[in-house]
Design a protein around this nucleic acid. Structure first.
Lengths: 345, 345
DNA sequence: TTGTATGCGTTATCAG
DNA sequence: CTGATAACGCATACAA
């Protein structure tokens, strides 16, 4: 039982005095091979420690059983969950995941796409970088009919499937909630409205204002990169506003936390002076005081669904190659940060 | 410039009336090929959109340019940073990463190892699951001289390289710091001491106590799974202790946060009644109030170094295949949660 | 149900 | 410096 040289189907065939064709078929569980020979082959394969050579197989079949993933960054709780969900279904379906980060740079995204293309991935799962304008770097994939699925940060007009939540509605609900608590001067902190998620959230915010007959004010929209630091910067700007806004809706919990912390340090009380609502239901939202009202966003599930859709597609299970969009359920979680009138006096 | 059929070296050779051997060599930048023909070939390759077929190459060279990664879970800030660091160097060196999660289960870890073995990864980066006892599932790798590097949660006696921090010293410093603040009844919350990181931290804690002539009490060590919930459970146990402990050293920030929150809800003041120190410098440590004293732990760097070591090894750069351990620098970050005497009265 | 023969696209070993 | 050719391990069309 030496592991020196790799065992091949030739070895199995020789030992059993049968042809490699039969061995190959048996190993693939081809129904055309008799149960008996199958068993013999399987047993010997196990005994000799045979493992199939994927390169040879791939070379023949030109499939890799590998899925490429491009994400802006892996270091948010949300994105980790997404990846975990993808890994979960990919693994159980015999696919491997190759993950690459664009670091929010369109240029790096381009390079990553090229690399994955050369790696001959069977399909691609993408969440776009902040500043990605053109989708030209994905053309090689679409040209070759390699399935492409966008999730979370999706593309406006694309051939591929999109998986996301209803950002507009979620933002609408969050804003409406803030208004229902008696707030009218509501600031919105977000990122450059290039990506659907931020555009839609902004629109939801605007629509909620409009529906409640509150005038939209351009200067109430603060644009940054949604980091904690950006939150602190936004806090500084908010404190300069007169009169002070009475609520803030942030497109991301992490940024909201940065902003809240800065405001608190300046002596502003939350929610008494300014109410807050965030987005993502990041773990920090239950650590910050007061706990942050936010939109729950099923990351793990989104990852699972994205991977599942892609694999179904690869297996020909889903014949639809038309532009279809999957909208996941999301929900507002109301916590202390936005509740104006406390029950205790 | 149709992309219908994949371009191969045969196509290039035919168009230029040269042999595929020359084309192959030129593409590899073999110095034996003349500059002129190299240029011709490179130009045509670009024009025709040639991309090398990795399967064919791998089949010949029996290398995959792929690194397998097994981690307990991807959903902590620390682990995300590690992965990000790995991805960073792997990508720039032309390697792909295949990431799989053990979900803290030794059984799943075994399966993952087998899968990665069959995927013929060139090397393996591993952080062990909580309850992994045996390392037998890594034997196929060591037998085949496939390099294996453990990071963070490393193995005691192994052939492979280990990358970690000095957990004992870090825990010693954290505990000593708590003692220096006047605390003597110090609880330690940790996980089952199977993994080096928890064993070492426990020892550091014990050693610090001993050095300050404080008796070690078995009942002051609370064992759980280090989740936020485990932290809350620990809080309940702490509150039953009489007299109340005056400090807690937790092996993980996230758990510390759960514990602090529960204690605060019960009206216990931090640090006035009980001081806290955590481990990992997770982002939540600067969100929880009071901010948490903790041990900073260079996750991104650890990922980079792990990947770098492995790749160097694969390239034959590091000839050392002996058992060597790389210890990364870590440091105690003192924040409010452990400072007894505030400057303001 | 099984066997034969061929090609997938490279790299490596020769020989020029 | 270049060319011819043999592997690498597998899947499959075709034949039996």
């Amino acid at each position: 039982m030496s592991t020196e040289k790799e065992v091949t189907i030739y070895d199995l065939a020789r030992k059993l005095n049968i042809s490699i064709a039969t061995v190959s078929r048996a190993l693939k569980d081809d129904p055309v091979v008799s149960k008996k020979t199958k068993k013999k082959i399987a047993d010997l394969a196990l005994e000799l420690g045979y493992r199939s050579n994927n390169f040879a197989r791939n070379l023949r079949t030109s499939r890799t059983n590998t899925i490429g993933v491009i994400i802006p960054r892996i270091n948010s709780s949300f994105m980790s969950s997404v990846i975990a969900g993808m890994e979960n279904v990919a693994n159980s379906e015999g696919y491997n995941l190759i993950i690459s980060q664009s670091s929010e740079s369109a240029e790096k995204e381009r390079v990553n796409a090229a690399t994955l293309f050369n790696s001959r991935v069977d399909g691609l799962l993408v969440s776009l970088a902040y500043d990605t304008d053109s989708l030209a770097h994905f053309e090689p994939f679409t040209k070759k009919k390699i399935p492409l699925i966008f999730f979370d940060r999706t593309a406006d007009k694309t051939e591929g499937t999109c998986i996301q939540i209803d950002n507009l509605r979620a933002a609408y609900e969050a804003t409406t909630h803030l208004i229902s608590q008696g707030n009218t001067r509501i600031v919105h902190i977000t990122a450059t409205p290039k990506r659907n998620v931020y555009i839609d959230r902004l629109q939801g915010y605007q629509q909620a204002l409009a529906d409640q007959r509150i005038a939209f004010r351009e200067d109430y929209v603060i644009v940054g990169n949604l980091s904690q630091e950006a939150g602190a910067d936004a806090a500084a700007r908010i404190m300069e506003m007169k009169p002070l806004p009475d609520a803030v809706f942030v497109a991301n919990d992490n940024c909201a936390v940065g902003c809240m912390t800065a405001l608190k340090q300046a002596g502003i009380r939350i929610p008494a002076d300014i109410a807050f609502a965030g987005f993502n239901n990041d773990p920090v939202s239950t650590v910050i005081e007061p706990n942050l009202t936010t939109v729950n966003y099923p990351g793990y599930e989104m990852g699972q669904i994205a991977a599942r859709s892609l694999i179904d597609h690869l297996n020909g299970a889903s014949s639809i190659h038309s532009t279809n969009t999957i909208i996941l359920r999301s929900e507002l979680i109301v916590r202390e940060s936005s509740i104006r009138r406390k029950t205790n006096p």
